[in-house]
Amino acid sequence: MFAALRVSGLVVCALMVALSSSGCRTKPKPPTNVPVSKSDESIKPITLTGDDGSVPMVGERTADGIRVTDVVFESVMFEFDSFKLRPSELAKIEKVADYLRKNTAVHLVTEGHCDERGNNEYNMALGEHRAQAVRAHLVGLGIDAARVQTRSFGEEKPVDPGHTEAAWQKNRRCEFALFR
């Protein structure tokens, strides 16, 4: 019963993202006011601050703490010059949300990266928007916004230093850095 509800919540999220992807390039719309199962004990609607879909940062920047290294999550990948969350990437974010629900002492930083093409300064902002899109989705899945910070590396930290389409594709990503 609860599992079914959780799946339906996911489907709603996926549908919203899929719907928002019509047209040549649309911005990610985090699920606003979508009932999502936060834990097996309770189901309540998540109200995001503001009606524009953006999730403001909470309080001061917190120290990273000790890096969690016993679990590694797959990076969320992006299209060129886009911060849209593709439906194929949503399951990766859901896995992180599951982990965070079970490990309440863990907080994380979503780290946005770009490929080397394009202006450095613009890429800093684009990488940040990728990190923010993933953060907003986590919050939509019921994760406390105060547990998620963002960090953009722009084009400064490629995983593949090559100058090929294959390398660029690998570099357009959002990584999950977990701390406790």
């Binding site: 503001g50 953006s54 999730v55 403001p56 940062m57 300064e121 800093m124 902002a125 940040e128 928007h129 923010q132 907003a136 963002t150 953009s152």
Partner: peptide, 9 residues
């Protein structure tokens, strides 16, 4: 400058 503290750059 660019800030993202309110949820996006």
């Amino acid at each position: 400058l660019t800030l993202s503290k309110d949820g996006n750059p």
